[in-house]
Design a protein around this nucleic acid. Structure first.
Lengths: 158, 158
DNA sequence: GATGAAAACTTTATAAG
DNA sequence: CTTATAAAGTTTTCATC
């Protein structure tokens, strides 16, 4: 089930990836038709792509506004101390927060970039004051509120 | 098919969302078992959640390294001019770039935040010099290379 | 909400061209 | 690769408790 050595991708593989990236619930028959193959080789290719780890999984995309968290914020975090201990604790805590959608260790002026879903400025303030700033080692943060999403993909276009 | 008025979510709805957020290819029978319902009411709820727009879609998650774009960068962009015309052209161009995974209009010092997948520093330089800086109206950018992903979700945890 | 049943379709495997 | 076959499982609808 883990990643194996990278297979070369031909045009049909790319069409399969694009189709499933767009709709993960296509049936094999529908997919085969879309990519111009008969069902049986199509099925073989999908299994090969899954086993090669190229397809990592299938997820449902939910509406975060209807889940009560309509606003997306991007928070950059600068740490005071950079010892293993502080960073590990910070990372573990951030990973556990349900409003955190994405978190990266990055190069540059700041140490981490976090994308979170919150309910307005009140929800943001709560996240910042009650959660992030209570974690030891946080020196400074800098936040951008998102106003509009221009593009949201879940992987680069195949 | 579009979003309707928000239904209240009970505990079972949340379990359905969590399960499908984790694996969008569960069969209705498997899902029903996981959430403690028999298949037919489970199926009715899923359809209701889809029609309410709470489930926006189902996507396959692909391995960007195997697609030839192993590195993720976060690029903040400051514009020179903020007239409708310049912004529209910029947004249209960014949206079309296959390496751009996500792009937001934001508040704060910069105007846009873009997440892109590139092949190393060479791929990044190409994106910046051959694509982003050729767009009219771009004054300045500031990039963080990501070193490690701590968390990657596709919506906040239900 | 649960259950059960039936028809249409899907998955998965295999065989043969 | 294609077409064809077949068994097992799944979806979807509908009737009934």
């Amino acid at each position: 089930m883990g990643p194996m050595d990278t297979p070369r991708l031909d045009a049909i593989d790319r069409r399969i990836l694009r189709a499933l990236h767009h709709n993960a619930r296509l049936t094999n028959a529908e997919l085969a038709e879309q990519v111009g193959l008969s069902p049986s080789p199509c099925w073989t290719r999908v299994k090969r792509l899954e086993q090669a780890g190229l397809i990592q999984g299938y997820v449902a995309i939910l509406d975060q506004a209807q889940l009560g968290l309509p606003d997306t914020v991007i928070i950059e975090v600068m740490m005071e101390r950079h010892d293993e201990e502080s960073l590990k604790r910070f990372e573990a805590a951030v990973t556990e927060m349900p409003e955190v959608i994405e978190a990266w260790l990055v190069t540059g002026e700041y140490d981490y970039v976090i994308k979170a879903a919150v309910g307005g400025t009140a929800g943001y303030e709560r996240l910042l004051r009650e959660k992030l700033y209570r974690l030891p080692g946080v020196r400074h943060t800098r936040t951008s509120f998102t106003l509009r999403c221009l593009k949201q993909s879940w992987t680069p276009s195949p």
